[in-house]
Design a protein around this nucleic acid. Structure first.
Lengths: 225, 225
DNA sequence: ATTGTCCTTATCCGATTGGATTATAGTTAT
DNA sequence: ATAACTATAATCCAATCGGATAAGGACAAT
C-alpha cells in the first residue's frame, strides 16, 4: 500500500523534481499538487475521504497563503493528515512558527532527494516525524534557551535535585558569592573564621569545584541561591 | 587531529565496546572514562586545559550522581565541552531534563555503533549536536505541546560602561570570571603571568573592587561581558 | 544505644592573590 | 612632537585561600 502524498510548492521545478523522486521510490503515490496554501486548501476540499493524503510536503514561503498558515488551517481541518515542512529556511523563527502551527516534521531542501524519501519512508515505519539533523539541533536549542514548562511536571527543580547543600551551606555560599572574606563571613554569622572556611571547603567538595570562582559560576548559572 | 572524547557509563561492557568502536573509527581519542557522574567530575579536575575532552558521552541512569546532574554541573564548569547523552531511555521527562541541564545532543543506544560514530563525526563537521531521529521528533512534540516563549534578546542596552575597560581588559575579565589562574590567562593570551596579573589589578582599580569575587559580581550583575 | 549528619573550632602548609612600584615600547590624541 | 594612554614585563611582600586533618557537641534516625 503506497503512502499518499501531497506536494505544496510555488516553484514548478521543485514540484516536478520532488514528484519524480517520490514515484520512482515506488512506495509513494502523489495525490495532490498545489502551488500555494490557498490552492492547497481548495484542492483538499475536492478530495474524497479515501483520497486524502497521509502526508503533505509543505514549502514555507509562498504567495497567497504561506506554509505556516496552511499548516495551521490544514492541521485543524484534517487532523489525520501529517504536515511535513520541506523548505530551504532553517532560521529559528520559521522553525518555531511551523511547529507551533502543527508541523509533524521539518526537512531541509539541501537534503538529497534520496535522504528525503528515506526519511519519509522511515516516518511511515516508525511513526515519528521526519526531521533533518540540523533542524533537530535547533529545536533542541529552542527548548534549552526558552521557558518551556513540562505540563504536569514540577518543571526544573535545580537546587534540590542536583547538589544537596545544607541550609547553612547555602547561607554561606550566598555570602561567599558576594565576595566576602572568610573573616567577614564568620563575623556576619557569628561563627569563627575557621568554621566559615570549613563550610566553604565542604561546599567546594559537594559542588566538585576547587575555587571560589568556579563555585560562583555554578551558583549563578544553576541558580543555587 | 582526533576528536577528544570522554565516556561516562556505569556498565563496564558498555564503556569498553564504545571505546573500541570509537578508536577503531580512527578520528577519536578517548581521554577519560568514568563510571558515574561523581567519578567523571573528579577525573575532569585532574586534566589540563589541553587534555579536556571536546565531547562527553554521558549515560543517564548511574549511581552516585546521574547523568543529568553531571551535565548540569559539567556544562557550567566546562562551557567549551559538549555533553551528549547516550542512553536507552527515550521518555520525554528524561529528554527534557537532560536538555535543560545543558545537553548538546541525545543519542539512543539502540542506534548501531556505526551510526553513533557517524553522527559524532558529523557533529564535528557541521557543528550541530547529534540527535537520534526518534528523539528529535519527541523534542518537536515538546515544543508543540508546551508553553514555549520565543525570547529574542531583551535588548538590554549595554550602558556603554561607567567603567571603561579596554578591549584587552574585557578579554581578561572574561577569563578571570571563568576562574582561570593568572598563569592560565597568560598562557591563553600568550602574555606573561605578570602581565595578566597587572591587567587584573588595573581592572580592579577601574571597577573599584579588590577581589576576584567582587569583580565577578559586577560582571554578572552589570552584564559587563 | 549507636550510627549518621551537621555545625562548630582549630592548626599547618603550600599555592595563589592583591598591592605597590618601576620600566619599556607602541599607539592615539592634540 | 609631545603628551597621554595602552599593553607588556618584572619584583617584593603580606594577606588570603585551598587542602588535609582532627575533634567535640547537637540532634535525628535506626
Amino acid at each position: 500500500m503506497p503512502i499518499r502524498i501531497a506536494i505544496v510548492d510555488d516553484r514548478a521545478s521543485n514540484r516536478n523534481i520532488l514528484k519524480d523522486k517520490l514515484v520512482r521510490h515506488g512506495h509513494f503515490k502523489v495525490m495532490l499538487i498545489a502551488e500555494d496554501g490557498k490552492d492547497f486548501l481548495q484542492k483538499m476540499q475536492q478530495l474524497d475521504q479515501e483520497e486524502l493524503p497521509a502526508v503533505v510536503l509543505m514549502d514555507l514561503e509562498m504567495p497567497n497563503m504561506d506554509g505556516v498558515a496552511a499548516i495551521a488551517a490544514g492541521s485543524s481541518l484534517y487532523p489525520s493528515v501529517k504536515f511535513v515542512v520541506l523548505t530551504i529556511f532553517d532560521d529559528e523563527d520559521k522553525i518555531f512558527k511551523a511547529i507551533k502551527a502543527g508541523a509533524f516534521g521539518y526537512l531541509l531542501k539541501d537534503e538529497s532527494a534520496e535522504d528525503i524519501t528515506d526519511m519519509l519512508w522511515q516516518m511511515y515505519e516508525s511513526g515519528a516525524g521526519p526531521i533533518s539533523p540540523g533542524i533537530a539541533f535547533k529545536i533542541l536549542q529552542l527548548v534549552q534557551n526558552n521557558n518551556l514548562t513540562m505540563v504536569g511536571k514540577p518543571a526544573y527543580v535545580p537546587q534540590k535535585s542536583f547538589f544537596d547543600l545544607t541550609e547553612r551551606e547555602k547561607e554561606i555560599l550566598a555570602l561567599l558569592v558576594q565576595g566576602l572574606l572568610y573573616k567577614e563571613i564568620g563575623a556576619k554569622l557569628n561563627i569563627s573564621t575557621n568554621t566559615a572556611k570549613k563550610h566553604v571547603i565542604n561546599i567546594y567538595n559537594k559542588l566538585h569545584v576547587n575555587s571560589r570562582a568556579q563555585a560562583m559560576n555554578l551558583a549563578y548559572e544553576k541558580g543555587l541561591l
